[in-house]
C-alpha cells in the first residue's frame, strides 16, 4: 500500500494558485496565481514559509513560473501578455528583462535543458522560442503557428532541444530546429485526445511523453526513430510518436496537470475532481504496450480543483500541489 502524506499546508496567496515550480536543487520553490504575485518558499527548520514575495512584475494573473536549469533565473508567464525574467544579481530578486510579443494571455513558459533557450505559448495560438542572447537580453528565434487554437503548455525534452506543446485544439505538437537552415519547424502532431490537452511531461529518457486532457484521460506516447527495431514505419526520416497507452476510467473531471518524476519514474496527476493520483509503470510491462498501475488516490487533496503537481527534482518523493482553493500543499509519497 502506498500513500500521500501531507507534510504541510501553505496559505499565503489570495485566490487561485495556478502553478508551483521547484528550484532545480529542490531546496525551495516558487508559486504564482490570481493575486499577481510570485512567492518564494523555503524551509526554516522543519517548516516551509514564505521567503520573498515578488510584486509589480505583472498587471494580471501570473499563470506559470519556471526556474532556469542553473537555478539563477526565474521566468513568469502572465495573462498580461508578457513573460518576466527575474534574477538576484543585485542581491534581491528583481525583474531584469520582459519578453513581449504575444498578443494576449501567455499561459506557459519553459527553459530548455541547456538554459540557452526559452519557450512561451498563449491564447494567440502561437509558440515562441527565445534565445538567451546575453545578460538580460533575449531574442525571438521563432514564432510557431502550428496550432489552430490557444496553446496551454510548453515543455522541453530533458536533454535535447526538442519542444512539445499542448493545445485547446486537442493536439500535441513537437518542434525542432532544422540543422540545415536553422529554422524551427513542427516535426510531429499527436492526435488522439478528444478535448483540450492541458499539460504534458517527458519521462527521464525523453523517449516517452505523458499528456493529460479535458477528455479525462492520460495518454503515454513513445518515440519511434527511423529504422526502429519494432518495425514501426517512419517516413521522411523523422521520428514518429505513437500513443502506446491510454489511462481512462480513473479521473472523473478535467485533468489539469501531469508530472513525471525523472528520479523515481512516478507519475502524478492534478484533477478537477480535487484528487491527486499517483501512477507507476508495472514491472512486467511491455515497452511497446505498457501498463500503468494506480498506486494511490488522494481524495479531497484540496477543497477545489487541483491545478498543478510537481515532484521534488531531488527524487525524495516530495510532491507539491496547488489549487483554486488558494492553498499549496507539500506531500510525501511513501509506502505505508
Amino acid at each position: 500500500m502506498f500513500k500521500l502524506e501531507l507534510i504541510q499546508n501553505l496559505a499565503g496567496h489570495k485566490g487561485i494558485v495556478w502553478n508551483v515550480s521547484w528550484h532545480p536543487l529542490g531546496k525551495y520553490f516558487a508559486s504564482c496565481g490570481e493575486d499577481k504575485t510570485i512567492k518564494l518558499w523555503s524551509k526554516y527548520g522543519q517548516d516551509w514559509a514564505i521567503k520573498t514575495v515578488l510584486v509589480d512584475g505583472h498587471q494580471r494573473t501570473i499563470r506559470e513560473v519556471a526556474w532556469s536549469p542553473c537555478g539563477n533565473f526565474l521566468a513568469s508567464a502572465s495573462f498580461d501578455a508578457t513573460t518576466a525574467i527575474w534574477d538576484k544579481k543585485s542581491g534581491e530578486f528583481q525583474c531584469n528583462a520582459t519578453l513581449e510579443g504575444h498578443e494576449n494571455e501567455v499561459k506557459s513558459v519553459a527553459w530548455s535543458p541547456s538554459g540557452h533557450l526559452l519557450a512561451t505559448c498563449g491564447r494567440d495560438k502561437s509558440v515562441w522560442v527565445w534565445e538567451v542572447a546575453g545578460e538580460d537580453e533575449y531574442e525571438c528565434e521563432a514564432v510557431l503557428n502550428a496550432h489552430n487554437q490557444d496553446v496551454k503548455k510548453v515543455a522541453w525534452h530533458p536533454s535535447l532541444d526538442i519542444l512539445a506543446s499542448a493545445s485547446y485544439d486537442n493536439t500535441v505538437k513537437l518542434y525542432q530546429e532544422d540543422p540545415v537552415d536553422n529554422d524551427w519547424t513542427c516535426v510531429a502532431t499527436l492526435h488522439s485526445h478528444e478535448s483540450t490537452v492541458w499539460s504534458l511531461a517527458f519521462d527521464k529518457t525523453g523517449e516517452r511523453l505523458a499528456t493529460c486532457s479535458d477528455d479525462r484521460t492520460v495518454k503515454i506516447w513513445k518515440e519511434y526513430k527511423p529504422d526502429n527495431q519494432e518495425g514501426v514505419v517512419v517516413t521522411d526520416r523523422e521520428a514518429v510518436w505513437k500513443c502506446i497507452c491510454t489511462l481512462s476510467g480513473f479521473h472523473t473531471r478535467c485533468i489539469y496537470d501531469i508530472a513525471w518524476c525523472h528520479k523515481t519514474d512516478l507519475i502524478a496527476t492534478a484533477c478537477g475532481d480535487d484528487i491527486i493520483r499517483i501512477f507507476k509503470e508495472s514491472e512486467d510491462s511491455d515497452p511497446n504496450a505498457p501498463t500503468f498501475e494506480l498506486l494511490c488516490t488522494k481524495k479531497n487533496a484540496h477543497s477545489q480543483d487541483v491545478n498543478c503537481v510537481a515532484w521534488n527534482p531531488s527524487g525524495n518523493q516530495e510532491l507539491l500541489s496547488c489549487s483554486d482553493d488558494g492553498e499549496i500543499k507539500i506531500w510525501k509519497f511513501t509506502e505505508a
Binding site: I16, T61, F79, K152
Partner: peptide
C-alpha cells in the same frame, strides 16, 4: 460549451 467549460479562459475573461 467547450469555451464555457475552460476555467482558464473564464478566469482570463473575468480580468
Amino acid at each position: 460549451n467547450k469555451q464555457l467549460a475552460d476555467k482558464e479562459r473564464v478566469a482570463a475573461a473575468l480580468e
